[in-house]
């Protein structure tokens, strides 16, 4: 077993996204935690440092932008991937401005997210 697995957080208030991403990423050899409530995810990043965070933007309560700002503040090395059904140039720009690694519009193919995560991994391992 690979002991050096990357740790990934998935946050999306639509449970289906979490349910589908988890096995897909686990099969690629990552350790995955999923959250449907942004408050829980926010709580979690206070204790756990993730290598990669995949988050939706528009959610009830704390939105994705707040979460990723906080994540980056606590752990600048964490790579962030935004997935959103409201993809506009503005949100994309703002995301990249915040240091987001990749921005993927929903709906997306499994392979798209798998590739984005692989690229983030390459970047992390290359450090």
């Amino acid at each position: 077993m690979n002991m050096n697995r990357l740790r990934i957080m998935v946050l999306d208030d639509e449970a289906i996204v979490c349910k589908r991403l988890r096995p897909a990423l686990e099969k690629q050899g990552y350790q995955v935690d999923t959250f449907t409530l942004s408050a829980d995810a926010m709580e979690q990043i206070q204790h756990v440092e993730y290598d990669i965070i995949i988050t939706d933007l528009k959610m009830k309560g704390i939105d994705g932008m707040q979460l990723l700002t906080e994540a980056k503040r606590r752990s600048p090395k964490t790579e962030l991937i935004v997935i959103t059904g409201f993809a506009t140039m503005d949100t994309a720009k703002e995301s990249f401005h915040k240091g987001v690694f990749d921005f993927i519009a929903k709906p997306f193919k499994l392979s798209e997210i798998q590739e984005a995560v692989s690229r983030a991994e390459t970047k992390i391992r290359g450090r």
Partner: peptide, 13 residues
């Protein structure tokens, strides 16, 4: 195509 499972989508879609 979305019903084939290769995509991840949600209710909003």
């Amino acid at each position: 195509e979305k019903s084939g499972g290769d995509y991840i989508f949600d209710r909003k879609y």
